[in-house]
């Protein structure tokens, strides 16, 4: 359980005054302790790749807002109290694409799951503010409805619940919250059919039970289908590329790119440059032992691919 109780987070005024004022294009390292000042460094279109953030300024000149702000986040495994996250700092603006890389076991999935409120972990310190609200005060379902979506690294199988029923249940939960009338199954079919095409999934997929007997690739496509159906302001994609063949990776990346708008953001966890070439990030963070130890642009991933984690390691 969250031990922290923030009623209303104070907007980081320092950051807003710096926004859009700086652009960087090279690898840089910020010591974790000084991370608070980091979000002021904004990447515009200086990266070699086109990114949704680049169009952030086209929005009537309105400057992008902070979507997610994580400060000094620490978390332990609830059962054993073993510390996993040891002070994570991260700031994501609307429209930005971030990637987190790091060795197996460094805490990437834990970080993602803590963001969406998984009960296996207990937050012991720090703060998470999403769209100006204290996320730690919110139930997982409310975080989802608020616009946070995480695609699971290993989605659980739910025998006996069909994909279509599950999606409709989730979609109607949102509509209820928004004060909209619920969709009937028929209305929902009409809504969902184009989404299937986006992820290149056959309609008969909808009648199968959630993730039951799905191949690795089908599970990932299904996660993205859920994202396409439910929508999200911040999508956290945990190893969405693992176990995908080339075609599936292209489909999935295309779908994610298609969902991006100038205001929507992505936080993806990956081991491979390949994905980053499809969905191009503004920032790449390296996680090690429960902390982000380095942040930079695509060159950090290239270095990693060439020389391994020792090249970017803190130790």
């Amino acid at each position: 359980m969250a031990v922290l109780n923030y009623s209303s987070p104070s907007p980081p005024s320092l950051i807003s005054s710096f926004k859009n004022s700086t652009s960087i294009s090279h690898l840089f390292t910020v010591p974790a302790t000084r991370r608070r000042s980091f979000p002021s460094f904004r990447i515009k279109s200086s990266l070699a790749v086109e990114s949704p953030a680049a169009s952030g300024t086209s929005n009537g000149g309105e400057s992008p807002k902070i979507l997610l702000q994580v400060k000094d986040l620490t978390a332990v495994i609830a059962q054993t109290e073993q510390p996993i996250l040891k002070g994570v700092n991260l700031c994501i603006y609307e429209g930005e694409v971030h990637a987190v890389m790091g060795k197996n076991g460094s805490g990437k999935s834990t970080f993602a799951k803590v963001l969406v409120g998984h009960k296996d972990y207990e937050v012991t310190g720090g703060s998470i503010v999403f769209k100006g609200e204290n996320l730690l005060d919110m139930e997982p379902e409310d975080r989802s409805i608020a616009g946070l979506f995480m695609s699971f690294q290993s989605p659980v199988e739910i025998p006996g619940v069909s994909n279509i029923d599950f999606l409709l249940m989730a979609y109607n939960a949102r509509r209820r919250k928004l004060g909209l009338p619920e969709y009937s199954p028929i209305e929902f079919y009409a809504y969902i059919m184009p989404k299937l095409e986006v992820v290149n999934i056959k309609p008969d997929f909808l009648n199968r039970n959630v993730n039951e007997g799905f191949s690795g690739g089908e599970k990932k496509r299904n996660e993205i289908l859920q994202l396409a159906v439910l929508g999200a302001e911040l999508s956290i994609l945990d190893e969405i590329d693992s176990g995908l063949d080339v075609d599936a990776l292209r489909d999935v990346s295309k779908a994610v790119n298609g969902l991006l708008t100038p205001r929507k953001s992505v936080l993806m966890i990956t081991h491979y440059l390949r994905l980053l070439e499809y969905i191009q990030p503004n920032y790449i963070h390296i996680m090690e032992d429960g902390k982000i130890i380095k942040t930079g642009d695509i060159s950090i991933a290239k270095l990693l691919e060439k020389e391994g984690y020792k090249a970017v390691s803190a130790t």
């Binding site: 969406v116 409120g117 998984h118 009960k119 296996d120 139930e139 997982p140 379902e141 989802s144 409805i145 995480m150 699971f152 989605p155 659980v156 739910i158 599950f166 249940m169 989730a170 939960a173 949102r174 919250k177 959630v210 859920q226 439910l230």
Partner: peptide, 15 residues
């Protein structure tokens, strides 16, 4: 199963 319950919650469905 906790993990199954959480999967629902993570998609906005209450407990």
């Amino acid at each position: 199963e906790e993990n199954q319950l959480f999967y629902f919650q993570a998609r906005g469905i209450d407990l």
